[in-house]
Design a protein around this nucleic acid. Structure first.
Lengths: 120, 120
DNA sequence: TTCCCCGGTCACCCCATGGTTCCTGATGAT
DNA sequence: ATCATCAGGAACCATGGGGTGACCGGGGAA
């Protein structure tokens, strides 16, 4: 029975990383932590993201019910993005991982230097 | 000042995902949750991983001080892998993300179906 | 003697991820 | 009469992450 659970886990690990582990998703989610943002606003806020990748990432988040997209039929167009309640729980959880990274950044850098100096 | 913090955050998000967000790392860490495992044992436990990718992933984890590698000079060769204390804290944190995924798997699947049926 | 086991390394190749550039469409400002 | 704004769409392309298969070395089993 442990094996079955274990295989399910393996699958879940894969699923969550496929969902959230790409280059931009958590960045976008993080940008939305304080509330509604507009497309160009997000683009300016995320260093290095292209227009296309922002669109792709937002669409995926919208599809999964993590981000709500609101179109205002005005000109020039105005589209608002915000986290859904489920998106907010994701942010909360992912935040812990970010904090872990901050806490251990130095340890990892040190370990890396040691490893590289001994093993070439 | 919020902007500076914000940019640092963006960087940290990127760093942690570069470290942990690839296809296999969390799977391997998860496999090691109960203690020491051997190479072939890990390979059998992670569905679909190739020998090369397991090696690459383990080397990266070792380099970052997250996994300890112990070679026993016997024949046939025996190599043990185990989480370091830092690796265990990573597992603990990542676990929350996995639990999030399990909790919301149905919601996401539902949202996805709705999205695809209306816009697809 | 030949095969298998274990823990890898090496060389090669593919395709998915993501980047770049150009396009749209309505309108207000210059 | 242009030009810029805003939110994308479409086509094209490059990189590298990741997969495949071969090979290694030394001892035990058949």
């Amino acid at each position: 029975m442990d094996l079955n659970v274990h295989d399910e886990m393996t699958c879940q690990v894969r699923d969550v990383l496929d969902r959230v582990g790409d280059k931009w998703t958590l960045n976008v989610v993080h940008q939305l932590r304080h509330g509604t943002r507009r497309f160009t606003d997000l683009k300016r806020g995320i260093d290095g993201i292209s227009q296309r990748m922002l669109t792709v990432t937002l669409r995926a988040l919208e599809r999964d019910g993590l981000v709500a997209r609101t179109v205002h039929p005005v000109v020039p167009p105005r589209v608002d993005y915000a986290l859904t309640p489920m998106g907010q729980t994701l942010l909360k959880t992912a935040w812990e991982l970010i904090e872990w990274a901050q806490t251990h950044a130095d340890d990892i850098a040190g370990a890396r230097r040691r490893y590289d100096s001994t093993a070439g």
